[in-house]
């Protein structure tokens, strides 16, 4: 060790890189190790897609006036939304485990800023969401469950699903900072399943003449689900809802609620006691 006085003076001020490649690599590796996340984001949507695809009658019926896609493709989009939502929520909610384990506190003994940790979590969520979407699409295309007559709907659905599911990364972070427990996902998994049903991911949109259907329109997955399916249906009338700004509004409002919640809990968490 060199002379302490010069050492203290020569200590460089910390760099403030927002994104650290080593940290990102380790975080991604941790996700790959997490069996529960892998099953719910990759295996479950793919299996459900093949299963529902083989059970559904009229799987090959084309949907919408433009006849862009079949029912199998509609189911595929639903499963991709479900997988991406699970993926991003899990990635966000992993902060609860880190808080329970004292890892967040440990990070405060480094120059890293809590905000950059949140950014890493968001980026990991996007990567995982993209993977979930791509896996579901590949399974849909390869097994022949989904038929789409044009290329455009593929990337349109993909973009909507990945960007839209970022709302659920914020949801995951909000819950992760709210629930200081190792088991946040055990609570969030069933909650997301219920929201997925309300969002019409397991059935198609709920009929709007029922009370459930009315309520469902205000739940968080509904807007994303409708937007994600629209490139396939392109309807203006008929069985599938024509495009409505209310879908965008649903996604944006819930997004703002979750971001505000996450910021609120995050601030409280990082306040110096």
């Amino acid at each position: 060790m060199t002379s302490p006085l010069t050492d203290v003076a020569s200590r460089p001020a910390p760099r403030r890189t927002l994104l650290n490649p080593t940290v990102l690599r380790i975080e991604l590796r941790r996700l790959v190790r997490n069996r529960r996340i892998l099953i719910f984001t990759f295996v479950f949507p793919a299996v459900m897609l093949v299963f529902i695809g083989s059970q559904i009658t009229g799987q090959d019926d084309v949907i919408g006036p433009q006849a862009v896609a079949n029912v199998g493709a509609y189911v595929m989009a639903s499963m991709a939304v479900y997988g991406a939502v699970m993926a991003t929520t899990s990635a966000g909610a992993s902060v609860s485990i880190e808080r329970a384990a004292g890892w967040s506190r440990q990070l405060r003994l480094t120059p890293a800023r809590p905000l950059s940790h949140v950014l890493v979590k968001m980026l990991v969520a996007v990567v995982l969401g993209v993977c979930a979407t791509v896996v579901t699409f590949v399974v849909g295309a390869v097994t022949g469950t989904a038929h789409v007559t044009a290329m455009a709907p593929w990337w349109q659905m993909g973009v909507v699903i990945v960007l839209g599911s970022l709302v659920f990364a914020a949801f995951g972070l909000f819950m992760g900072y709210l629930l200081p427990s190792e088991n946040a996902m055990q609570f969030l998994g069933p909650l997301l399943a219920i929201l997925a049903i309300f969002g019409g991911l397991f059935s198609g949109p709920l009929p709007t003449d029922s009370l459930y259907g009315q309520i469902a329109q205000y739940t968080p997955i509904y807007g994303l689900s409708q937007l994600a399916h629209w490139p396939l249906t392109l309807t203006t009338t008929g069985a599938h809802d024509p495009f409505r700004m209310a879908w965008v509004l649903n996604l944006v409002v819930w997004g703002l609620v979750f971001v505000a919640g996450a910021v609120w809990r995050f601030r409280r968490d990082t306040d110096r006691v």
Binding site: N20, V23, N34, A101, W103
Partner: peptide, 21 residues
């Protein structure tokens, strides 16, 4: 506390090292 169960020993140290200039 201050450790994550699913990380390896080396990863825990690497992670910390990545945060210091």
């Amino acid at each position: 506390g201050g450790l994550l169960k699913d990380m390896t020993v080396r990863e825990s140290v690497e992670y910390t090292a990545a945060l210091f200039p």
